[in-house]
Design a protein around this nucleic acid. Structure first.
Lengths: 318, 318
DNA sequence: TGACATTGAGAAAAGCTTTTCTCAAGAAAA
DNA sequence: TTTTCTTGAGAAAAGCTTTTCTCAATGTCA
């Protein structure tokens, strides 16, 4: 039995008798033959590996993205190198070099916010690069969540529940996401209440509630929070003040960070950025690029969706 | 210039003139030559890749382990495939097969608890396997944290602060870790108070405080919690009851999960399991195995350390 | 039955390094 | 001057697949 015959049999290529083909396959299965991906890669210039670069140490955003990538690519036999590079350019270069040495088919860059670059130069690389949830190079493909639409979803949900004095407690306005969400909020509720910018901490959530409730005049009947940590703190702070959630005040978060959203009492209704879908798209795109298919560059915005739990009231079955 | 001469020049092997060697190196640097790791691997049977298998979706335990592995191995030019297999045996097999196809030099299995196996068969693999924070096969190398010692650390710290009625609110006693910690606790404080087993949720933390404070008799002056989520809830519940932390009651957590521990008010003093160090050891071990060095099988227990914040009182500078 | 077509299987090359071996040239020794 | 060493450089093979080409054998048609 020649090597080439075996190869052709296993790959269903070449001309040969069906009996021979079957016989080879059976034998291969029997001895547990695994074609060496390295050798195959040597020929095809494909390694069926990609690199995922991130500076998100806690995996808050990267893990869902990674899950999506893996889900999309595992069927294609592609495995993913995860490289956490902190915010260290040197570490970044080390990892990129390692990835290039291993001839990854492509690289996906991911991060913690969509208006910051990873601290590493990914231009002029010999492999395709796509960006997911981080700022991309000018002519690249970049995926991010639709903050504006997500905020609309949240605010309209509150309005649909009859809420009319909706406050917005959010993160620093240096974030594009924060500004986008604030713009959507402004568009729907007007200028009655100021947008409250702060930090992404629980401390700020408590502080914001204190400011709102210590001020004179009517209190809000709903609070749209910039992330789940703030939302959680807001819920806690309201409870401590004897304000009932969701009866007196509805609270909606952003991120759908299970660990926070589900453990809050009551569990948070919150906007999910669909990071997994985002990862899936990024994975398929980098694969397409790796296979030489051409992909229109630009920023692709994926819609958010609202995850209804109990912090707003309303029928969770809607 | 022959290929072999170039190879020898770049690898500092073979006999040749220093001038030739230098000339080759300069030229290589100039054109940005990267030896193809695949071809090298084809010869040496090394790919400088390893697989990290985990069922820890949120990365709670796996990400620190991963960080340690990467830190230890990046200098050796080794990259890590992260495979999240949920608890799905099929997915597990798919990923293991993908890893074997790619001829990883070794596999590290990791998980969420040290007394459960990953839902996938890792025996009789053609590559070395080491286990980190998950139950290993009989004659394997397994790394885990020293729960007993960690608990001793926590309880002795409380005792050192003068606390005498120390309660223990922890997770389900089906966990080996829980039983180990409880045993250490028992050994140091005796039977005055029952060990309170529950779930790993904040709800249980609240519930436990209610039980303790609604009971007749003296209240605890310290609570040793089975993880940070419980500890956080305990702190919250105490504050809601007007009990001051740390003035009236000291609370210590377990895990040092930054996101929880640092956001709690006051921030949690807690036991850190040194997962990063654990990952580092696991990484170095799998590398040693991959290089053919022999490693004594068995369970390696790494010590925990106490991270002092403010939930216990005492001088954080100690 | 002879010429031609078809079919199935094997040989060989390519892909990129490293390593071992061979060989030629120059230098040193006789 | 001839022989022997030494040194530096190149040739070749190995590692594992896939693909293209070649070739022998069988079958078909005239």
């Amino acid at each position: 039995m020649s090597i080439s015959t075996a190869s052709k049999a296993l790959n269903n290529t070449g001309r040969m008798g069906d009996d021979t083909r079957e016989r080879v396959k059976r034998a291969a299965a029997e001895i547990g033959f695994r074609p060496n991906t390295l050798a195959k890669g040597l020929l095809s210039n494909r390694t069926f590996t990609i690199g995922l670069l991130t500076n998100d140490t806690y995996g808050r955003f990267t893990l869902p993205v990674m899950a999506g990538i893996t889900e999309a690519l595992v069927d294609h036999g592609v495995s993913v190198f995860l490289c956490t590079i902190e915010d260290d350019p040197v570490l970044g270069k080390v990892h990129v070099d390692a990835l290039l040495d291993k001839h990854v088919d492509g690289i996906i860059a991911s991060g913690k916010r969509i208006d910051r670059r990873l601290p590493v130069d990914l231009s002029n690389l010999p492999v395709p690069v796509v960006y997911a949830f981080t700022e991309g190079a000018p002519d690249s493909v970049t995926f991010c969540a639709d903050d504006f639409q997500g905020a609309v979803l949240a605010v309209e949900w509150l309005q649909g529940l009859g809420r009319r004095r909706i406050a917005h407690v959010t993160g620093p306005d240096s974030f594009v996401s924060v500004r986008e969400r604030a713009k959507a909020y402004r568009g729907l509720v007007g200028d009655a209440l100021p947008v409250m910018y702060g930090t992404w901490s629980e401390a700020w959530g408590h502080e914001a509630v204190a400011q709102l409730w210590n001020a004179a005049g009517a209190k809000p009947d709903a609070i749209f929070c910039g992330n789940d940590q703030i939302a959680r703190a807001v819920v806690d702070a309201l409870r401590e003040r004897g304000v009932r959630v969701p009866e007196d005040v509805s609270v909606v978060g952003f991120d759908n960070w299970e660990i926070v959203a589900a453990q809050t009492r009551p569990p948070l209704t919150t906007v999910d950025m669909n990071l997994k879908a985002l990862g899936r798209e990024a994975g398929l795109t980098v694969l397409a690029l790796a296979e030489g298919r051409s992909v229109e560059p630009g920023i692709r915005t994926l819609p958010c969706e609202l995850v209804v739990r109990q912090s707003c009231g309303g029928d969770p079955e809607l």
